[in-house]
Write a protein that binds this DNA or RNA. Structure first.
Lengths: 183, 183
DNA sequence: TGTAATTCTTGATTTCAATCAAGGATTTAG
DNA sequence: CTAAATCCTTGATTGAAATCAAGAATTACA
């Protein structure tokens, strides 16, 4: 599954894939409600979701602010913690039984040094992620809840099949009641 | 100025800097109100701000949504347009006389291929930018305007010296009146 | 430097989403 | 399969920020 995905990256030779794939050695199975990482822990892994659904959120005194979701074929990590090796602000919780593969930061850093093409792959992933966050930034600034919903429906309709509405509402910075009224 | 900054990047040898620096060959001077890029144009350059202040915004039928600022020693571009080579959604406007250096996308791509260390430099810049956007995403989701202001004051106090309040208000998704009342 | 343009502040009013509340639907898990 | 928990919907009310408005302060530039 990860294999299929990596094989389709045009940058990679079969040899690259063969070197990369075995580094994804940890297999995680997390049940509904379990945490992949909690606030305060330092992120050590980059994950690949094989099955299931997860939510990323920031716990605050007032509420849990949902900042993202992960589902099959997505990469997942507490990014700022991973790159700076500081305690994570965010929690990652599984919304159902989920299966993941993981590569450690050190293995990932090393193979990027050894194989520049994997460094380039990661650069392209970062570029995609950054462009996505810039889109998202605009979404969040739209003053009308219906507009925010519309943009999410357009860009990620599948989320509505996977994730309870209350989390989507938080992600769209509105209450579940408001989301219910405009859907 | 850019030279000083690049020399301080630990990754770079003097030879790297010598290869990189001359590619920043375009010099732009833009006056107050001038545009570096308008909606619909395809971004060709990565800019470095030598002096001045600029704002990045999304024009919408209802309002101009401010999504960022640039000031001396920052890199600047209409990022999604640059990486995907599609028309920019965003405008970049100068808020005062500003001077910039620019490197073309093609030159930048080429030197990253030739010198992996510059690819790595860019990867690290992307990681920083992405971590910053993730912080920003949380800032925008905070329901209380005073909290959003507080976080910006903490992280970027200098922009309050550089940028008219009305743009900062938009950036914080509130009206200038609200910002005035809570400052 | 003086004048026009722009930006900021403050007050009064309105609007729209949050909150509070309760019943109904769906999902989970034993 | 059933009970319990969770989640969603709908209505009534409240509250906080947007809007509207006007005057003051600041900044631009000729």
């Amino acid at each position: 599954m990860l294999a299929a995905l990596l094989q389709q990256v045009p940058l990679f030779t079969p040899d690259d894939v063969e070197a990369f794939l075995p580094l994804w050695k940890k297999r995680y199975t997390v049940n509904r409600g379990d945490f992949l990482i909690r606030q305060g822990q330092v992120e050590q892994y980059l994950y690949f979701v094989e099955s299931g659904t997860l939510r990323l959120y920031l716990p605050t005194p007032q509420e849990e602010i949902c900042v993202g979701f992960a589902y099959p074929n997505t990469l997942l990590t507490s990014f700022p913690s991973l790159v700076t090796q500081t305690p994570s602000q965010y929690c990652i919780q599984s919304l159902r039984r989920s299966e993941l593969l993981a590569i450690s930061k050190t293995d990932f850093d090393q193979i990027q040094e050894k194989r520049p093409v994997i460094g380039k792959f990661w650069r392209l992933e970062l570029e995609k992620a950054l462009a996505g966050k810039i889109e998202r930034e605009v979404d969040l600034q739209l003053p009308d809840p219906a507009q925010r919903l519309e943009r999410l429906l357009r860009r990620s309709p599948h989320i509505f099949q996977l994730v309870p509405r209350k989390y989507i509402a938080s992600y769209l910075r509105m209450t579940p009641e408001t989301l219910s009224r405009i859907m």
